[in-house]
Write a protein that binds this DNA or RNA. Structure first.
Lengths: 209, 209
DNA sequence: CCGCATCCCCAAAGATACTG
DNA sequence: CAGTATCTTTGGGGATGCGG
């Protein structure tokens, strides 16, 4: 796409990530590297040519990088660069603004989306706590680490450290629990480990302001 | 443009303001309402049909509103709605990210852009201060109000209150002064009023972190 | 003038098929 | 699995023109 031709930093940012699908591709990488096929599956309607075009543009723009994993994995993954990872405040601001929409959100919900909601609305609470929480939704596994009340890590995939608590269940149930809509006891979810840690987590997710 | 069809709040936000030119149109409204012709002039390359299309879409989406001023003005202006004004954190995040680009910003600089840089990087300092600053660049006039160290207002156009200090001059000179690149004394700018207030302002604009 | 609508042309997106 | 090739459709860029 053509550049806006303005020195304004907003225009410059949009030159880099303003194309259709670009920010959604990058959103998919917020929880870790993904393969081409994963991206295509997570972005219904994108079309293979547009996706590969975006991946090339974003790589050329220094926002993401293409990594070829060594054998025997022998797979290609796309990951955010340092500059790309700095888009986090942009995603937070966009997500908060989108949540405040007068019109309701419609469409399908993904597991990633549920987990990223935690990152968007996580607030450090009054008393610092430290824990590792594992969330298993469908066949996806996520790990989040809180150190001194700060969310320091939220990634897709299993983790080296054993979690203090594990929450598992179908997407809608886990989403309801994490959104605070349904209590843990009355939802069709499994809970292993320290239930108090999960309460601390839920208390740290503030969606109102 | 077609919806992304995802319930993700980021996707929903992009459904509303993700079209080409949309966010730049809204950026033009951050400092106050503008007319169609002003928008067209501020966005070189947009084309009248696309601009009016965007204005209609954004109005239908509840992001901006079309106002017909009463006679004798009898002009049409476009202004942000309440929800549209809440895009401010998105612009701040995008601008900060754009400034951190590994590639240099190229293109033309506008007076609005210079003033918005102040809003993007303004930080409340250690000691609170209160003042009204007027900036005259070219034939544009801007007024910014600081109350207790907080930037409470930054608008285009003259203001009712008389300013404590007025900075004036050509675009490049004023931009250099406000960016801290050039000292006030050695720039081709005029300064009327309390020079200490301008120093306080410049000290409140922190671009590094 | 200001605020668009129309028209034409090209570039980009969507969809499908296919290949190293 | 990771894309490319191809085709069709849609949308953007640019110029002109018209009504208020």
């Amino acid at each position: 796409m053509k550049s806006y031709g303005q020195a304004c930093p907003v225009a410059h940012a949009l030159d880099a990530v303003g194309d259709r699908w670009s920010l959604l591709v990058l959103r998919e990488l917020r929880l870790g590297p993904r393969r081409y096929t994963d991206l295509a599956a997570a972005l219904p309607g994108v079309g293979p040519s547009v996706l590969s075009q975006r991946l090339r543009d974003l790589e050329a723009g220094g926002v993401l990088e293409r990594r070829t994993l060594p054998p025997p994995a022998a797979a290609v993954v796309y990951a955010l660069t340092g500059w790309g990872a700095e888009l986090e405040p942009v995603f937070r601001a966009l997500a908060r603004w989108g949540m405040g929409s007068p019109q309701p959100l419609r469409g399908s919900v993904s597991a990633d989306s549920v987990m990223l909601g935690l990152r968007t609305f996580f607030r450090r609470g009054a008393q610092p706590w430290t824990a590792v929480v594992e969330v298993r939704v469908g066949r996806e596994v996520y790990v989040l680490r809180v150190v001194d009340g700060e969310l320091t890590e939220l990634v897709r995939g299993a983790h080296a450290d054993s979690p203090d608590v594990t929450l598992g269940g179908p997407l809608t149930e886990v989403a309801a629990v994490l959104a605070g809509t349904v209590a843990v006891g009355s939802a069709a979810v499994t809970l292993d480990g320290d239930a108090a840690v999960l309460d601390l987590l839920l208390a740290s997710v503030v969606r109102s302001p």
